[in-house]
Design a binder for these strands. Structure first.
Lengths: 223, 223
DNA sequence: CGATTAATTGACAAAACTCAATACGAGTGG
DNA sequence: CCACTCGTATTGAGTTTTGTCAATTAATCG
C-alpha cells in the first residue's frame, strides 16, 4: 500500500519567518516515531510532557466539547514544531491525520537546552510567536468572514504551506476541513462545488484541489 | 470629569499562569505614557518597534478589513503585556478604549535584556505562550459556539480578568464586544436582554453587568 | 464485485444579520 | 434645574446565510 504523505519528507523550514528557524532547533529533537492514521499524539487535558516536530505526514490540533462539537485549531505539516506550550496541560489534542513521522523530545530537556543559549531561546520564542500569529489570523477568519472566504483562504493556505504550487494534496477529510473552518461538511462541500462552477478550482478527486484562478481566490480570501 | 478606569491601578499579575510572571518583566519597561480614549497605540501594518504593558485602562487589539468588518483579537487589561511579537509588522492595531496608562520600551533593548538572562527569557516565552493559549481559546469560541455561549463566556472572562467578583465594569462599548465575539451589536444586545430575563445577570447601566447566577453562566459557556 | 465509508446534493429550519424605529443617558446651554 | 441634542443601546420585522436531516452518488477496501 502506498503511504499517504503530504509532500516529500521536507527538511525543516518555518513557513512564516522565512526559513532558517528550525534547523538549529531540530538538533534538540530526539528520534522520530511513526504514528498511524488517526492515532493520538497527545490527548486533550493530558499533561504536557514533550515537544514535537512533524517530519512527514500531518497532524490536527483539535478540541472537543461534551456534545461533540469540535474545533481544529491548527494543522501541523512537515517542518512544523508543536506542543511547545508553557501550560501544564494541553487544552487541545493532537492526532495524526495520516501515517506520520514525528520527532519528539522531553519538554524539560528541550527547554533547558534552549534557555542556556540566547540565540536558541530567541528562536523558541519566535516559533511560539509564529504560532500566535497564525492563531490570530485564524481567529480573524472564524469571527468575521463568510464560508466562501474561509474555503478560498483554506485552499491558498494549504497550497502555500504544503509548497504545492497549484495542485494541493489535502491530507485531511472534509470533516477536518469543516471543523477547522468552523463550518459543516455540507457547507464546505457546497462551497467547493461553487468554486468549481466558477472555475476558480477543479477537483480531480476528493483529496486534490487544483487552483485554476489564483488571483480570484486571493481576492475572495483577502482581508 | 471622572476618568474611567477598569478596576484600580493594579500591580502586575499574569492572569493565567498564577501570578509572579510580570513583576520581573516590569523592571524592563520604560516610563508610562497616558493614551486618551480611542487613540491609537500602534496601527495595523505598522512596523513593530516597542513592547507595551497596561498599567491602567484597557486596550483593544483589532484588525480591519477594507469593507469595514473588524475583528478584535483580544482586550488588554491592567497587568497585561502586549505587542511582544517576533514579526516585523503588526497585523492588528492596538487602541486604548478609555484613557489608559501604558508602559513602553523599545523591543530591541527589551529582548536583549531578556535573552541575556535565562529566567527572564523563559518568562518572555511563557508570556507569549499565554497569549497563544488565549488566542486558541477564543478561536474555539468563534468557530464553534452560539451567540449565547459567547456572551456568557465573555461576561465570565471579564469578571475574572478584571477581578471584579460579580459586578463587572465593562470598559468597552457594545460595538467592541460584538467585534470581539464575532457578532453584531444587535445580537449582543438581544442576548444581554435574554440573560437578564433569565435572571443570570442584571444590567444596572450600559457599562455594568452584575452576575446573578454564576453557575448557570458557567454551564452555558462551558466547553 | 459487493460492502462500507466519505462526499455531494436537495429541501427545509434555525440562527444570526440587516435595516429601521425607538429608547436611553450623558453632556450642554438656556 | 430642565430641556435639547447627540451618541449609544435596545427592540422589532423581515432577510440571508448556514445548519440539519435525508437521500444519493462516488471512492475505497476487502
Amino acid at each position: 500500500m502506498l503511504q499517504w504523505r503530504t509532500g516529500a519528507t521536507a527538511p525543516f523550514r518555518s513557513s512564516e519567518s522565512g526559513g532558517g528557524l528550525l534547523p538549529d532547533v531540530a538538533k534538540l529533537m530526539g528520534a522520530s516515531v511513526e504514528f498511524n492514521r488517526d492515532s493520538e499524539i497527545f490527548e486533550q487535558n493530558a499533561s504536557v510532557t514533550s515537544v514535537y516536530a512533524v517530519v512527514s505526514g500531518s497532524v490536527r490540533f483539535s478540541r472537543l466539547m461534551q456534545d461533540g462539537r469540535r474545533q481544529i485549531g491548527a494543522f501541523y505539516l512537515p517542518g512544523d514544531l508543536f506542543g511547545l506550550e508553557s501550560e501544564d496541560r494541553h487544552s487541545f489534542a493532537a492526532e495524526s491525520i495520516v501515517n506520520s513521522r514525528i520527532k519528539m523530545t522531553k519538554r524539560g530537556s528541550f527547554l533547558e537546552a534552549a534557555w542556556s543559549e540566547p540565540a536558541l531561546a530567541k528562536k523558541i520564542w519566535a516559533e511560539t510567536s509564529v504560532h500566535l500569529h497564525r492563531a490570530q489570523e485564524h481567529m480573524f477568519r472564524l469571527g468575521r468572514t463568510t464560508a466562501e472566504e474561509r474555503v478560498a483562504a483554506f485552499v491558498l493556505e494549504m497550497d502555500w504551506r504544503l509548497r504545492s504550487s497549484g495542485l494541493v494534496a489535502l491530507p485531511m477529510p472534509r470533516r477536518d476541513i469543516a471543523d477547522y473552518l468552523g463550518l459543516t461538511i455540507e457547507t464546505v462541500s457546497r462551497i467547493f462545488t461553487l468554486l468549481k462552477r466558477q472555475e476558480l478550482i477543479s477537483i480531480p478527486d476528493w483529496r486534490h484541489i487544483a487552483i485554476r484562478n489564483r488571483s480570484a481566490l486571493q481576492q475572495m480570501s483577502d482581508c
